[in-house]
Amino acid sequence: MNFKLRVWRQKTGAAKGKLADYPANDVSPDTSFLEMLDLVNDRLIEGGEEPIAFESDCREGICGTCCLTINGEAHGPDHPGAACQLYMRRFKEGETITVEPFRAKPFRFVKDLVVNRSALDRIVQAGGFVSARSGSAPEANSIPVPKQNADRAMEAAACIGCGACAAACPNASAMLFTSAKVSHLALLPQGDPERTNRVLNMVSVMDEEGFGNCTNTYECEAVCPAEISASFIAKLNREYAVATLRKKLGG
């Protein structure tokens, strides 16, 4: 198959970027989108040009490294799934495909299609954990957890931290990401003791990092490769309201 690529090229965050056109010819429909980019890069290198910088690692949709906006959609048109799980047979012969990085202010630009998403790490550092010293844990079966809570916690915990939610959100909000971690831990008894501070601190760091606000457009859940439900955002709002109240009442 043959395609026409329009790829965002920008050397550094300070430099000016633009879309550049590249042909992607003789691509097998069984090629993944990233392998197609590999192919284009190999040809660029052999032709003496600089390859397109883009990141990926596991290439099976779990590590959350790849962060491409393809034809205006985070991770491309094949939802749910990460860009690495997108195959060229999904596109039409001769189609023009636009590739841009994930764009949000807190995602510091690095190069071409690469951004730095450590803002998400800092949100977790603000409280997205259970303070359990190694070796101090009680016997695992000593606290039964209702199956439906464990299952629901797993649904939230499935987040791969790719940042597509913020990239796709018209407001560049990271509420879905934050709500997934808050909900995961709030649903389990082990997360309960730190519940109040966790949600307050995580939300405050999320705001400090410069993510936008949620206006309930639900674009995030539509592009989430891990199918995290936006109902966790409602849970986050609830947790936040309760925590604020508890703080005000001196709890």
Binding site: F129, V130, A132, S134, G135, S136, A137, P138, E139, A140, N141, P144, V145, P146, K147, A150, D151, A153, M154, A157, H184, L185, L188, Q190, G191
Partner: peptide, 22 residues
């Protein structure tokens, strides 16, 4: 065995039976 204890305490959502045990 300690690993399982540790991970459960950290909030790893292991699969559970209807009785709530692992």
């Amino acid at each position: 065995n300690s690993i399982i204890d540790q991970c459960v305490e950290q909030g790893v959502p292991f699969a559970r039976e209807y009785g709530g045990l692992l």
